[in-house]
Computed example of a mutant assay.
Amino acid sequence: HPVLAGYRAFGLPLGEGFQLRDDELGVFGQPEVTGKPAGDDLREGKRTVLVALTSAALTEKDAALLHNSLGDPELSDEQVERIRELMVSSGAFAKHEQLIEQKSQAVFEALEAMNLDELVHAALTDIVGRALRRKA
């Protein structure tokens, strides 16, 4: 059905973008905003897209550091900061942001393709902003 297809085209990239942003906040989020310690996703060993992009862009030595750090519940704040630096300096963080932006563009393209009431359109636009540009 066309309505279902439209909402699917809207919802799938929205959910993917939300997860990408969530993964980013799990490493780079500010604890006073997110409510959880910075680097928690690293300590938990989450294998996210950001981690994969970083790993693929690192030297063998730095990739070993990353992989040996993942899942270490005793990872210090200094070690978390070192991994963050690797994510940024490798270009992985920028690529990750590009992925989120691509998801955002797909969401807005789907939104524009649907024939929606102005109020519904505004509400969905607000949801997109809260999901993909959030800080917590």
Rank of each mutant, 00 (worst) to 15 (best):
L4V: 13
D23T: 02
L99D: 09
E101M: 05
H1K: 09
L99V: 04
F28P: 11
I100P: 02
P37V: 06
V88Y: 01
E78R: 11
E32A: 12
A113S: 13
L42C: 01
E60F: 00
N68F: 03
G39T: 02
A64C: 02
H1M: 11
G45M: 05
G29I: 06
R133L: 13
R130L: 15
H121V: 00
A122K: 07
G45P: 06
T48Q: 07
G11F: 06
V33R: 13
D23Q: 01
G11L: 08
T125F: 09
R84G: 13
E60C: 00
R82C: 07
S89E: 14
L50D: 06
A136V: 03
K135R: 15
S55N: 06
N68T: 10
D126K: 14
F10H: 07
A5L: 13
Q30R: 15
L119K: 12
F108D: 06
R8F: 11
L14A: 10
G6L: 13
L124E: 04
A52H: 09
V128Y: 10
A94I: 01
D23R: 01
K103I: 00
V3A: 13
E16V: 14
L119N: 07
G71T: 05
S89P: 01
V128P: 04
K36M: 10
E101G: 00
T34W: 09
N115C: 07
E44A: 12
I100T: 09
F108M: 11
R8L: 13
L4A: 14
A64H: 05
A94E: 15
L66N: 03
R84V: 01
P31K: 02
L65R: 14
A64F: 02
L42D: 05
A123P: 00
A92M: 07
A57T: 03
T54A: 05
G35A: 12
E74I: 00
F28W: 15
S89Y: 01
Q30A: 15
Q105E: 12
M87W: 04
A106F: 04
A122Q: 10
D126N: 11
K46T: 10
A5Y: 10
Q79F: 01
V107I: 07
A9Q: 12
S90C: 00
D23Y: 02
L14H: 03
R130E: 15
Q98W: 01
K36T: 11
F10P: 08
A64T: 10
I127P: 01
G35L: 08
E112C: 04
K135N: 13
L58H: 00
D41P: 12
L50M: 08
E44V: 02
A92F: 03
E44T: 03
L65E: 12
L4T: 13
T59Q: 01
D22T: 03
T59G: 14
E44G: 07
L116E: 10
A57F: 00
T59A: 09
F10R: 11
A131K: 14
I127Y: 11
P2Y: 09
L4E: 14
F18N: 09
S104W: 11
V27D: 08
D77S: 13
H121D: 05
D117N: 14
T54S: 05
F93L: 15
L75E: 11
R21T: 06
A122M: 03
V80R: 06
H96W: 12
H96Y: 10
S76V: 03
V80M: 08
F28N: 10
P13I: 08
L70W: 05
E97H: 04
F28A: 11
E97F: 00
H121Y: 14
T48V: 02
A113L: 06
Y7R: 03
I83K: 03
